[in-house]
Design a protein around this nucleic acid. Structure first.
Lengths: 229, 229
DNA sequence: TTAAATATATGACAATTGTCAGGTTTATTA
DNA sequence: TAATAAACCTGACAATTGTCATATATTTAA
């Protein structure tokens, strides 16, 4: 369970790959592995983080709750992604909560190691920067989608996003199963609206469902819908 | 007009302050100063940028246009901010257009200098990282606002944002004057809805107007509205 | 200065989306 | 396994927001 970071394949996918052997050794010696069950929180908005969390297995939602009970999922983080980095770098408390949407395995890495490495290893800093630049672009795209696309279009995009990023099983259902409420929080709509759209898409043959599971039945038509046809 | 970066006060506000004297000298020797009139584009979405733009004077909107003609302003950039950094770092073409919303003065800095400095000066990389972390947080907040707040609430926030960031003149009108269309593109709504809300706010004494100019008349009530009262 | 273009404004209406209320199904746990 | 809780679903309706049409004001340019 708690193996050496130097040998961890996950590292290939994130900024830790720019660390030197010695740096990785330090990380490995001070990291703490954790397992989380679906629904458990890794951290909650407003908390001060003492480090970052590297996702080894499973998927987490990064979301923000408002006073009126609405909840917006800003992005999903999975294998290879590092959560809490933004807050640690900006030396702020997190603006987002991280909650497991599937069983997870994460490694906690103390912030001192991260900031020391940032200060001394430009390769690492640039690598982190690239990842952050990517996240920023994605965030910009989400903003634009929220304002320029209808709920239906955003739902269609959510399904295709999940297929692209997490794949589908042998029966053609999305590997990552989200609750209807999670979908509504990704898309930014009421759960009822979300459910209605799922029903409609199913009726029209765009998707198929089996219990909670959702599969893409007609990708072409979903794409057309997103484009506005 | 075209002074030395080493002496530029603007630098204090952005990541260039982490550059060494020699690095700044290089920047200064290769930078190109430009003046832009309100409405002119600094760059357009999809373009490959050969460098970044440091804002010395004026304000620019960073926005994205969709096929159906809708336009979303993702953020505003003003004195001290560096535009195009994200694209240069990620080595992608820009996802956003930058258009002057007031007369501007910007300095173009070739990307080679930026990436060389990133690779060799960890202080600079970390400083850029901090700025990007800040932008990312702001982007997350915008996503949440778009999904959790009504158009009225977002309009109220836009007015307070402009007051906070650009101040007001001696008559109590916002220093930065945006067109109604710009407002609608910031808030993510139809221009007609935007105008209607401005009329309503005016009628209720929350704001005052004088031609294009808008002033905040009752900050308390605007805040209450944002909070949901 | 006048004409044209652009920005602002408002009404009428339609479409989208949210809310509430009540169901049914599915999952959890005692 | 039965009881309970949670998630899913649907209808009816209301609120919000967008669209189209049109009028007026303001700016720009001939």
């Amino acid at each position: 369970m708690s193996s050496r970071c130097e040998n961890c394949i996950i590292r290939q996918f994130n900024s830790l790959r720019a660390m030197s052997k010695e740096e990785l050794k330090k990380v490995s010696d001070s990291k703490i592995s954790k397992t989380l069950k679906k629904g458990e929180a890794i951290f909650k908005e407003g908390e001060k983080l003492d480090g970052v969390f590297c996702v080894r297995e499973g998927v987490s939602k990064l979301s923000k709750l408002s006073e009126n009970g609405k909840n917006q999922i800003v992005r999903l983080a999975s294998k290879g992604e590092v959560m809490g980095q933004r807050a640690v770098i900006a030396e702020e408390s997190t603006n987002l909560s991280a909650i497991a949407v599937s069983d997870m395995e994460v490694c906690f890495i103390p912030k001192e190691i991260i900031s020391n490495t940032l200060d001394t290893n430009p390769n690492f800093a640039v690598e982190v920067l690239r990842h952050m630049a990517h996240d920023l672009r994605e965030a910009d795209d989400v903003i634009v989608n929220m304002s320029q696309k209808t709920v239906k279009q955003r739902m269609a995009e959510a399904f295709l996003y999940l297929k692209k990023n997490y794949g589908e099983d042998t029966d053609g259902f999305l590997t990552l199963t989200l609750s209807r409420e999670d979908y509504s929080n990704v898309v930014g709509t009421a759960t009822e609206s979300c459910i209605r759209i799922i029903s409609e898409f199913k009726k029209k043959g765009l998707i198929k469902t089996s219990g909670k599971k959702i599969g893409i039945a007609d990708e072409r038509k979903l794409l057309d819908l997103i484009e506005g046809f």
